[in-house]
């Protein structure tokens, strides 16, 4: 299973690969991933690679990812080439009309790429008083509601509980449930 996780520096992308790693390790599987630190991390486009299974290299080759997890829609669209045909994009959208773009639709259809979109900012504004730092956990909730994501809600819940700092644990679990519910059904 190969994941590519994209977004903007400061959105908490590293936490999601930690959660995926924790899950894989508890299943007894090998994990390998690649992260971005330093100047490249400051507010600009960032990309994390994450592989579960028997691999040598931490990088996912374009056209090989099973799942693209995007914290920001523009970053998600820009990195669609990482997905394999038939792969899945789980994306946080703030201007969802972009998903109706005809050219984009025809590209996605031609490659049989599925899309699950969550309006993360709207949810956090409504439910969490606009504390957008919870976006990373919300998206993990959305991922756990997607069969193609390869991780169950219970697994994610346990890993988030283990990895959350004490003072954020309760709220993180609440937000995780929000993300899961938003994409369920």
């Amino acid at each position: 299973m190969q994941y590519v996780i994209v977004g903007l520096g400061g959105q908490g992308i590293l936490f999601s690969s930690k959660v995926l790693g924790q899950i894989a390790l508890s299943r007894g599987e090998r994990v390998l991933g690649s992260e971005v630190h330093g100047m490249a991390q400051r507010g600009g486009s960032v990309i994390s690679h994450f592989k579960i299974g028997s691999y040598h290299s931490p990088l996912v080759r374009a056209g090989e990812a099973d799942l693209l997890l995007a914290f920001e829609q523009g970053e998600g669209f820009r990195n669609l080439h990482f997905l394999r045909d038939g792969g899945m994009l789980v994306v946080n959208v703030h201007q969802k009309e972009a998903l109706e773009n005809e050219r984009l639709r025809s590209y996605l259809d031609s490659r049989r790429i599925g899309v699950r979109a969550i309006e993360g900012y709207e949810i956090l504004k409504k439910e969490m008083g606009g504390r957008f730092l919870f976006l990373n956990v919300l998206i993990l909730g959305a991922l756990s509601a997607t069969v193609e994501g390869g991780v169950s809600y219970d697994e994610v819940k346990q890993a988030v509980a283990e990895l959350s700092p004490e003072r954020f644990r309760t709220e993180n679990l609440k937000v995780l449930a929000l993300g899961h519910e938003a994409l369920q059904g």
Binding site: L8, G9, G10, M39, A40, Q41, R42, G43, G44, S45, A62, G63, G74, E75, F77, R78, L80, H81, A98, N101, R103, L104, S106, Y107, S110
Partner: peptide, 24 residues
């Protein structure tokens, strides 16, 4: 072959460009 021309055209229409690093 892995042609991403269709994707490039869509990105152009949606005005999606890479975001360079910036001060927080």
């Amino acid at each position: 072959s892995r042609s991403d021309e269709a994707l490039k055209a869509a990105l152009q229409e949606l005005k999606v460009t890479p975001k360079p690093p910036a001060l927080c």
